[in-house]
Structures are given as C-alpha cells and as structure tokens.
Amino acid sequence: MQGLADAGWLAGLRLSDLLFYAVALVAVTGALAVAFGRNIVYSAFGLLLALFGVAAIYVFISADLVAVVQLLVYIGGVLVLILFAIMLTSKIGDARRSNLTLALVPGGVIFLLLLGLTVFLSLTTPWGTVAGRGLPTLRDAALEPTSERIGDALLTDFLLPFEIASVVLLAALIGAVIIARKEMRLLTTGGGQGNRP
C-alpha cells in the first residue's frame, strides 16, 4: 500500500493504479488514431494499440481468459484479416490519402457531446446502490483463474448460446467464402465449362 510518490495528490497512488492509467492511455491513443488518423494503415496499427490496451485492461480487472481470447481472436485473427483486406483493396497511388472522412465537424460535435454524456453518467451514477449494495473497491486478493468457472457456465447455463455460436461461426465461414469467391458469377450463369467427365 506504500505509494510510489509521497507528495501532494500522488500520495497513496498504488502501482496498480499507475499501471491502469498507462494501459488506458495506450488504448485511448490507439482509438484516437483509429478515429482520426489520415492513413488507413496507421489506423490499422492504431487498432492494434487499442486492442492490446483492451486486453491489458482485461488482465487488470482479473479476466484472464477473456484477455487471452482477446489476444488470440482480435489481434491474431481480426486485425490480420483487416490488414489483408487493406492491402488487397487499396491502390498504391492513393496510399497517402486513403482514409478520407466525411463531415468531420458534425462528427467532432457528436464525439464531444456523446463523450461528455457518457463520462458524466459513468462518474455520477451511484453504481453501488444500483446493484443493491455498497461499491466495492478493487479486490486485492490473489488472481484466481476464471477459466474453470467460465467452462462450467458455458456447459451448463449457457449451453444453448454456446451451440448456437458454433452454428453462427460455421455459417459465417461458409458465407464469407461464398461472398468473396471470384468465380461466383461464372458458376451461377455458365456452369457447364468445367472439366466434367
């Protein structure tokens, strides 16, 4: 509980708090780069920063399995997919101004209004009384793994959504292959040119 700094408003600040602020700064910086970056590739790398920061926030609030899944699925899957799509769809010539924006001024106004509203609500709502008890502070207990409880919940309470999610993933897989296939029109209109016996 000994703070790193003793003077003024920094007194009593724990190392975990400083870590959270650093991680949140990384995530918000990445999000700002995504929203206001001029180049689509820079936006993609901003998305990398934001997703990594979000995974670190998951670790901070002791959600270890969700953090690992975030790293695997988002950074290992979705971000690589987005980078591939950027490379496949952008021409070399317009790489400099490839991320134009429409109506940035109304967008900025919406950004400020919505940000003010959500931050105000987050800070002023008495969350403890909403949930029916006092607001607990961050638990200082040792990090206990959540994977066992999540596995139990997935196979008991959430069994039907779990199975439906597998069907959704299969449908998305087949749909993505069919939509992105180049020779779709050839197959549907003139399907007789294959080398059938």
């Binding site: 600040l13 918000v28 995504v34 929203a35 924006t101 940000l115």
Partner: peptide, 28 residues
Amino acid sequence: LHVGLPHVLVVAALLFCCGLVCAITRRN
C-alpha cells in the same frame, strides 16, 4: 485516483465514442 468501476467505464466510453465517430465519418 484509486482505480474503480468509474475509471474503467470512462475508458470504455472513450473507446465507444472514438468508434462511433469512426463509423460515422469514414469514407473507407
């Protein structure tokens, strides 16, 4: 300054607003 629920919610609100503005204003 101790990190609690409001701090995490503020970070999530910032991410949400950036994402919404990005989804509204992008041409790409």
